[in-house]
């Protein structure tokens, strides 16, 4: 460890990054951890094992995992179509993909309710069902995988695929041995983002989900209820569980990504 390894501008940069990160992320996170244990370990366990809270947490995590998985397949496909295919309206589609990012989520909720509620022009009514929640999550998480995979695909040299083909590799083998290893880091990064977003979503699904305890109540709504009931420790406990689950999923995806990339 030589002290000279960090130049002065680099040190300043690191300092700024750490300060920024602390103020915006670390300190609020520490506050959540602290307040979740304000009532003691017993109370934390009591809160998250309460049947209603546990049901909300389970529903949220499972739905978010499902949404991330669907995005892995559909998002990658959309990215592929956007990069490799030429078709009329492509430029429009490029822009539309990002709308779920830009739309305030409560507006998204209203739009979904109009489209898939009792007055649905498509005849699909998913209000107060878990399918409704899933739909809302798919909507808000759509851009993540598309936008992480797209730039990697653009950079990917098509010559490599052709070389693989000329050496006798079938389409599937080319995909598995050449394309997938290159795309996996981007796909997992997109899936992690989608999962993290889905697990904390509130606005887009509060209108369509019906919020019935044990059936369609998600964790973020449970947090709101704890706050309204002046139970901050309860709210922080649920938030902490979401944080830990996110962390576990992020780490798991990272490990998976490394493994697959190495095997390729």
């Amino acid at each position: 460890m030589k002290p000279e390894t960090l130049t002065r501008p680099a040190a300043a940069g690191l300092g700024l990054a750490l300060l920024w990160f602390s103020v915006l992320v670390l300190i609020p996170l520490a506050a959540i951890v602290l307040s979740s244990t304000a009532g003691g370990w017993q109370q934390f366990i009591g809160t998250i094992t309460d049947p209603e809270t546990f049901a909300a947490l389970r529903l949220t995590v499972l739905q978010a995992l499902g949404a991330a998985l669907v995005n892995v397949v559909v998002g990658t496909t959309i990215a592929w179509v956007l990069v490799r295919d030429r078709f009329p309206g492509k430029a429009v589609l490029e822009v539309i993909i990002d709308i779920p990012f830009a739309l305030p989520t409560i507006v998204a909720g209203l739009v979904l309710l109009s489209l898939y509620g009792p007055e649905s022009p498509l005849g699909i009514n998913v209000v107060n069902t878990q399918q409704g929640i899933f739909l809302a999550l798919l909507f808000v998480t759509l851009p993540f995988v598309v936008r992480t995979v797209q730039p990697v695909l653009i950079e990917l040299d098509q010559d490599v695929e052709e070389a693989a083909a000329s050496l006798g590799a079938g389409r599937f083998t080319t995909f598995r041995r050449v394309l997938l290893p290159a795309l996996i880091p981007a796909i997992t990064a997109g899936a992690s983002l989608a999962f993290a977003r889905a697990i904390s979503e509130f606005g887009a699904l509060v209108l369509i989900s019906g919020n019935t305890p044990f059936e369609t109540e998600v964790a973020s709504l449970k947090i709101l209820k704890f706050i309204e009931g002046d139970n901050r420790a309860g709210a922080a406990s649920v938030a902490l569980v979401l944080l830990v689950v996110s962390l576990v999923v992020l780490v798991a995806l990272d490990i998976l990504q490394r493994k697959v990339a190495r095997r390729g």
Partner: peptide, 10 residues
Amino acid sequence: EATEAFDKKV
């Protein structure tokens, strides 16, 4: 939100 849902005939 209750009013919005009522308007949308939920």
